[in-house]
Every structure is written in C-alpha cells, then in structure tokens.
Design a protein around this nucleic acid. Sequence first.
RNA 1: UCCUCGAUAGCUCAAUGGUAGAGCACCCGGCUGUUAACCGGGUGGUUGUAGGUUCGAGUCCUACUCGAGGAGCCA
Length: 423
Amino acid sequence: MMNTRVIDLPHHVGHQLTVRGWVTHFRSSGKIHFIVVRDGTGVVQCVYKHDQVQEPLATETAVTINGEVRKDVRSPLGVEIAVRHLEIIGESPDYPITPKEHGTDFLMAHRHLWVRSPRQSAILRIRAAIIRRARGFLDEHGFTVADPPIITPAAAEGSTTLFGIDYFGEPAFLSQSGQLYMEALAMALGKVYSFGPTFRAEKSKTRRHLTEFWMLEPEMAFVEFEESLRWQEQLLESIVSGALEDCAPDLLVLGRDLSPLERVKAPFPRITYDEALARLATLNLPVEWGEDLGAPHETALAEQFDRPVFVTHYPTALKAFYMQPDPHRPEVVLAADLLAPEGYGEIVGGSQRIHDPELLQQRLQQHRLPDVVYSWYLDLRRYGSVPHSGFGMGLERVVAWVAGLEHVRETTPFARTLNRVWP
RNA sequence: UCCUCGAUAGCUCAAUGGUAGAGCACCCGGCUGUUAACCGGGUGGUUGUAGGUUCGAGUCCUACUCGAGGAGCCA
C-alpha cells in the first residue's frame, strides 16, 4: 500500500490509502474521535468512530493511518479520512508545547520541537523558496556559484568582531564576509556568487541580528555601480514574486499582508545620502553630514516609499576601505544600502570596488590595515584589474521581511543569538 | 558596553505588606461531528539566587544571575 502526502489527498477522494505523520490535535465526543494529523506537507482530520480508539492520542504521537478519503465541506482541506486502521509508531507522552501561548525563551529552548508547529514550518518553507528563487535567478543569468572559505586568516574589513578559532595552534577566524575572495573568483569566472554562513561576534541584541546568518554575495567583473543596482533590484523582484507564487498558503498561515509584497517591482527608487539627510531634516531626525544613519533613520526613510529604496553615495569615511570613491566627488563612495519597507531595515549592502592598485594601497594605509595580510588582494589589482562590483544580501532579514515576522530568530532553523547557542 | 522591562505550578499569567490562585498541559469520569471542542473531578509551588527591612515579604530595599526589547555596530 502506497503512502500518500496529505497535500495530495484531495486528488484521491473515494480511495483507500495510508498517510503517515504526527497527531497535532485529538478531540473526542465519546463514540466519535477526531485525530488531526500533520505530515509536513499539510494537515488532515481523520475521523474514527465507536470504540476503535481506547484512549486519547497524545499530541505529536507518530501514527500510520489507513482509511478512505472522503469529501467534507467542514474541512479546510476539503477532505478528511474515515479511519479503518490506525497504528502508533512512536508515543509522545507529555509533549511540552501546548496549543496555548508560550514565551520566547521557552520556545527557543524547545526549538527542536517548535519547528513542528504550522507557523514555524511555514516560515522554513518560505526560507527554502527564497533560497531556491535567489539561486535560480543567478544561475539563469550567467552567475557561477563559487564559495569562499569559512575559516579565514583575517578580517575582511577590520571593523566587525570575529569569532576566533584555534587552527592547529595558529589563530584563525570564522568568516564575516566572503567578499574579498569573491573578487578573486569574479576575475576568474566573470559573474560569481556565494551563499553560505557568516559569523559576527558583535553583541547586537535586536530583532534584526543573529551571530550566525546566511549571506548571498554576488560579485561581478566589468560591472559598474549603476549596473550592480539593477542586478540587485531584479534579484529582489524575482525573489519576492517567487515567494508569492510558491508560498501563498504559507504566507496565509502567517497572516502576511501581501499588498506591500505585490508592489515590489523594479526599478526601486534611489536617493543619495545627501537627499536622505534633507528628508530626515524635514522629519525632525537631523543628521550631520558625515554621520552614519541609525536604525530609526533607516526606518523613517523606508516609510516614505512603497518598495525597497536604495540609499547611495555615502561619505567615504563611513564605509569600508575597498569601496570606490565617486570620481566626480571623492568624498562619497559608489556604494548603496537597500532598505526594506515596513521597518525591516538594510537587507542588501553593496558597492563598486576600487580597481586602481595605488588607490587601494593608499586606502589600506589610511585604514591602518597591514599590506602583508592583503597582499593577495592587491595582486588582483596588479594583474588585469577591471572595474567590478558586488553586494551582500542578508537572507534572514529578507525572509523576515517577506514573511512579515517580528524577529529574524524565527527565519532560520536554529538561530544563534547573543544569549543562545542551544539547542 | 549602555538604557528600559521582566523572572510565581510543566506552560501562559493573577495575587492592597496579612491563608499562593486561574486557564492550558497531565490523570480519572462524561459526551456519535468536533475544529485552540466542551462538561465534572483530581494531581501539581523552596514565588530566579543571596542578604536586608518588618510582628509578618511573592509584594519593599541592596547585590547578583538569567532572559526580553532597544541603542551602538552591522546583513
């Protein structure tokens, strides 16, 4: 006898078949019992009459159920199963997560079980769809996936705090960005991207931060700043429309308002840092030229637009050493942050990279970064250097935005935050 | 690192300085169409830790621990 996925049951009305899964609810009114079973694809109610079940089935009991699929207008799925035979595969006494409310700490401590809930499963499917669409878009547009090392000898930008490890007695670090390596790979393969975990040891405690998160980092040879922005907005448009196509039921489970997502079409608006300051001044959030924008500023700016907005041409002094100064205005760089609507903040950061060897060396010195460590990086400018650009997209922030979540910790199966490395 | 808030039953939360309670979970019983099913009964407590004030502290004070939200920094 074949096992059938719950999601496919509506195609099998009138048939006798078997589903395997876990009991999410058990209700009984004496002689008739209702067993709600989840199998990872969907949820179906199974009706069991008379005294075929002697005792209640505990939440999350693993079962095999054989019976007839019947049409029923009372079922959200449209069908239910009239049980002929039920077998308990694994018992589940005292399942800790109840249908009532739980606090964040309790749920995160039981994350290994929490992922079974409909809401968490929906989020993980949306994450999967976003990954699939992002990779699909890049694969179809001539990018080659080429992943940089995770164990690295030094910081990419020298700014953020790294997790140190003992590499056979030598100090090494977990990567906080693969970008410098991606530049090397772009000179080999043209358009490349990496997709993998990234680590930041900063003591950030907000709904937008994880210490371990996944980043998509495309890097493109012969691509200048403007073209890079076009790649970014097309990628995001593709991701969001893909999620709407692939995950409509999951977004419904989450209660996501779809109208802001349906508006995510390229081109995205662009404002310069200077224009951002002018807008912020009218909002009573004044920022001195040369100061960085804080989270409240980003939220206020993003609220003025109905789709993601690029903020470009930041002061050179605020940004990383490798970013290309604007040739017409060297006090600003050809860099952009992409701010998501609805207060989700920066989801992409990118720039054109310096390709001139002298300028790069000079910038390294200004940032007091040792030439020795960056010698291989300088080689990229020594041998056939070309203009090139790239960007990094924070997967969890994009998932949180698309799914409409309060916190990024729900966007990854086992979130690593400042105060949690378990389970 | 800084600011704010919090910690009481397995979970979510109540409790004027005066006998620690409810809902859910769990156990027992009832119910032939339930949908976070419902109805009746029951089990369950070193009130985060250590000190202090008081006749008396879950409640007030001090320190610490842990957690949450935010800032900074970043994706």
